[in-house]
């Protein structure tokens, strides 16, 4: 099955805008994003901390709806669109 991951802002520079990926049933959000992020060490460090958990400020969305980081252990389904967004702080 196929899932689309969309990166925003700085994450887009590190991974590109959209990543389409084929996944097996039962794949968790966390493991999917981890798998993609690991291809880019700098990008990985931008999204995950040294324990492998999401930085707590990272915003995750599924099909346009916010998902809590605590829910990232849930599984993805075919056609899901996942957005990974870093809030920006400058002004």
């Amino acid at each position: 099955m196929s899932v689309k991951i969309r990166f925003f802002a700085r994450f887009r520079e590190l991974f590109g805008a959209d990543v389409m990926t084929d996944v097996v049933a039962g794949t968790m959000f966390t493991s999917l994003i981890t798998m993609i992020a690991k291809k880019n060490p700098e990008g990985y460090a931008a999204i995950f901390d040294e324990t492998g958990a999401f930085h707590e400020f990272v915003i995750l969305m599924k099909n346009g709806k916010r998902i809590e980081i605590a829910d990232a252990a849930k599984t993805v389904v075919d056609g899901d669109e996942i957005a990974v967004f870093p809030p920006v702080a400058g002004g």
Binding site: R10, F57, P87, A89, G90
Partner: peptide, 24 residues
């Protein structure tokens, strides 16, 4: 909020919309 070439904006109406803490 901004960073580099990226920016974000939203309008918060207390009691109606999410507040900044709901979003971030």
């Amino acid at each position: 909020g901004i960073h580099g070439f990226y920016g974000q904006a939203t309008t918060i109406i207390p009691g109606t919309t999410p507040c900044l803490k709901c979003i971030f």
